[in-house]
Amino acid sequence: MTLFNLLKQEKIIAILRGYSIEEATLTVDALIEGGIRFLEVTMNTEGALKMVHQWRKAYAHRAYIGTGTVLDESMAKEVIQVGAQFIITPSLDERVVEVALKNGVDIWPGTFTPSEIVRASKLGVEAVKIFPLASIGISYLKEIQGPLSHIPMIATGGVTLENIQEYFKAGATAVGIGSSLVNKKLIQTGQFHELTELAREFVNKVK
């Protein structure tokens, strides 16, 4: 089964941004324990490459490790070298897409307008990230699904435990979730058991 087909089953990508290696690793432990299988560490996190390298070994067969906020071709090559299983970008950079696909790495680029979404699909990606949605709302996702429902979309921004099902009703194939799942307060206070329970709640919402 391809990685994207697995994502379609799991439906959730947890986004880690700005944590130390120690905090992030404890967080990943807790999230995996709660049933999260797709984990993205953003490239503007100090030590991101080291995290990907370590986690690929530590969580082999338990989770899929990728990188977000990949901004250019050079960054794409770096994350591929350390073993990233998927790449997510905030914008559509054709060179980044080309590097990923050439190396057999799944890439789900950030898009927003219908033109960007269609362009990304024509470049050969299996899915696009729709970003940002927090400020504009789920209704935008529903609208663009009208003419573009044949292109799988990963909705990112504004996803919470309370509204996650609405994203899927609006047409999302999967969702990227940051702070409402990777809860800063729980992490900083060491409440990793509670983080596991929160992850389990999210997972149960999409099953």
Rank of each mutant, 00 (worst) to 15 (best):
Met51Arg: 08
Val52Asn: 07
Val52Lys: 10
His53Asn: 15
His53Met: 14
Gln54Asn: 15
Lys57Ser: 12
Arg62Asp: 14
Arg62Asn: 15
Arg62Ile: 08
Ala63Gly: 13
Ala63Tyr: 03
Tyr64Phe: 15
Gly66Glu: 03
Gly66Pro: 05
Gly66Cys: 06
Thr69Ile: 05
Val70Pro: 07
Val70Ser: 09
Leu71Gln: 09
Leu71Asp: 02
Glu73Ile: 01
Glu73Val: 05
Met75Lys: 04
Met75Asn: 09
Ala76Asn: 03
Lys77Glu: 05
Glu78Gln: 14
Val79Cys: 00
Gln81Trp: 00
Gln81Asn: 10
Val82Gly: 02
Gly83Tyr: 01
Gly83Glu: 00
Gly83Trp: 00
Gly83Ser: 02
Ala84Trp: 01
Gln85Lys: 01
Gln85Arg: 02
Phe86Met: 02
Ile88Thr: 08
Thr89His: 05
Pro90Ile: 08
Ser91Met: 12
Asp93Asn: 15
Glu94Ile: 13
Glu94Trp: 11
Val97Asn: 11
Val97Lys: 11
Glu98Tyr: 14
Val99Ala: 06
Val99Ile: 15
Val99Tyr: 00
Ala100Arg: 01
Ala100His: 02
Ala100Pro: 12
Ala100Ile: 06
Leu101Trp: 09
Asn103Pro: 06
Gly104Cys: 11
Val105Thr: 13
Val105Phe: 08
Asp106Thr: 14
Trp108Thr: 09
Trp108Pro: 03
Trp108Gly: 00
Trp108Ala: 03
Gly110Cys: 07
Thr111Lys: 02
Thr111Arg: 03
Thr113Tyr: 07
Ser115Arg: 04
Ser115Gln: 04
Ser115Trp: 01
Ser115Val: 02
Ser115Gly: 02
Glu116Met: 00
Glu116Ile: 03
Val118Asp: 02
Val118Gly: 03
Arg119Gln: 06
Ala120Asn: 01
Ala120Ser: 09
Ala120Tyr: 03
Ser121Gln: 11
Ser121Ala: 15
Ser121Leu: 06
Lys122Asn: 13
Lys122Trp: 07
Leu123Pro: 06
Gly124Val: 07
Gly124Leu: 07
Val125Gln: 04
Val125Lys: 03
Glu126Ser: 14
Glu126Lys: 15
Ala127Ile: 10
Lys129Arg: 08
Lys129Ala: 08
Phe131Met: 13
Phe131Thr: 09
Leu133Gly: 14
Leu133Thr: 11
Ala134Tyr: 12
Ala134Met: 13
Ala134Asn: 14
Ser135Cys: 10
Ser135Arg: 08
Ser135Met: 10
Ile136Ser: 12
Ile136Asp: 13
Tyr140Met: 07
Tyr140Lys: 04
Leu141Glu: 05
Lys142Leu: 09
Lys142Ile: 11
Glu143Met: 14
Gln145Phe: 10
Gln145Ser: 15
Gly146Tyr: 10
Pro147Trp: 09
Pro147Gln: 09
Leu148Glu: 04
His150Ser: 14
Ile151Leu: 11
Ile151Lys: 03
Ala155Val: 07
Gly157Trp: 11
Gly157Asn: 11
Val159Ala: 10
Thr160Asp: 08
Thr160His: 12
Glu162Pro: 03
Glu162Ala: 15
Glu162His: 14
Asn163Pro: 11
Asn163Ser: 13
Ile164Ser: 08
Ile164Gly: 02
Gln165Glu: 13
Glu166Gly: 10
Glu166Pro: 05
Phe168Arg: 06
Phe168Glu: 06
Phe168Pro: 03
Ala170Met: 09
Ala170Trp: 08
Gly171Ile: 11
Ala174Asp: 01
Gly176Arg: 04
Ile177Met: 12
Gly178Pro: 13
